[in-house]
Design a protein around this nucleic acid. Structure first.
Lengths: 192, 192
DNA sequence: GGTTTTATCCTAATGCGCATAGGTAACGGC
DNA sequence: GCCGTTACCTATGCGCATTAGGATAAAACC
């Protein structure tokens, strides 16, 4: 029987697509093997373990989002830059829920060092450049934005904004208010 | 052989403790059964499934945190109320990581309706009472705070704040700045 | 206090998924 | 066309969730 031409990259990519389809938890080696019409143990030539696959998806997601952020924040500053940065995450979490979930997994120190995590930190700082913050404030601001954007995406994904009254304002409306608020804070920090 | 006197509540409580110890993912029915010195299938008299146990831990965590929030925000307002509300979540996420993780699980509509989720929404609004916001702004503010507090707890737990330079400011410092920022925003909304 | 009822806990068994070990044959270099 | 490499195979074992059906401890009743 002919070989399938599997590679680590193809397996990881398929795992990412599957995660977006059925959820990260449901990404099993068995399902991946079925997708490639291959016996389950055959995958072990290309990946070390199930956890290894998940880590691979996480690294893929971090790299993809870093590219998206880089493109989104190019040429904009201030509130527009915040909207661009936050919009990437909010959109990505909706369109690629499995990849997004993977990107939130804790990575061990060396994996994190080899990931696009550092690039994300740099990009976030770049997005804030227009506010002319002190370098200490920049760190606080990056954490603030990261917390708010990721928290928002998580709550939205968990449906926490839909549990309330039927006449509650739409999530989009709150999102704009959040961006307004963050922009106001950072502008006030600029003046210090 | 004597019976163990298991109940749904005792199983759920043990699951919560175990989750805090070894992580929510590692809470298996087998491990719980071992803890009670009982055969695994015996648990099915008290819980419907593994997912049911997790949901039970989530409901427990939501109820516990609602009590903590109620106690923390009693008699305070403004920035102090924000610190109280956020502090509950940040502390809880560190001291009870398994329960906290469970509290972030998506719940189906009827389970959510029976949970302390509604109480949390009411408590959050109560914490904001001092800002005298319009009712629409109150919803936006609750979402803003929820996103930021939970995002912060998640990033902190994932170690995202420790990956950077060794001389980076401590997380506590950023936390105070976040509270300052949120307080400033809400005070500005008050004036509208 | 003995009998009936209830339901807690048991053993047995199935199925799925991860993972390791060791064999076989397809491919790439020469 | 031969040879070495390795992608993929079958066989196997383990852990966990879950179902089915039986035994007995405990409670309920007279």
């Amino acid at each position: 029987m002919p070989r399938q031409g599997l590679t680590t990259g193809r397996v990881t990519a398929a795992a990412a697509d599957l995660a977006d389809d059925v959820g990260l938890e449901q990404v099993t080696l068995t399902a991946l093997a079925k997708h490639f019409e291959v016996a389950t143990p055959s995958l072990y030539t290309h990946v070390r373990s199930q956890a290894d696959v998940r880590t691979g998806v996480a690294l893929l997601a971090l790299a993809e989002t870093a590219d998206l952020v880089a493109a989104a924040i190019a040429g904009v500053s201030g509130r527009a830059a915040l909207a661009a940065l936050g919009g990437v995450w909010r959109t990505y979490a909706v369109e690629h829920p499995g990849r997004y979930a993977a990107s939130r997994l804790p990575l061990d120190a060396e994996t994190a060092a080899a990931s696009a995590g550092r690039r994300h930190a740099d990009l976030s700082r770049a997005a804030l450049r227009g506010y002319r913050l002190s370098s200490a404030d920049e760190v606080h601001a990056v954490r603030f934005l990261g917390a708010t954007f990721h928290g928002y995406a998580a709550l939205d994904a968990a449906g926490a904004f839909g549990h309330g009254a039927a006449d509650a304002p739409a999530s989009d409306e709150s999102w704009e208010r959040v961006l307004d608020g963050l922009d106001a804070i950072l502008r006030s920090w600029e003046a210090r």
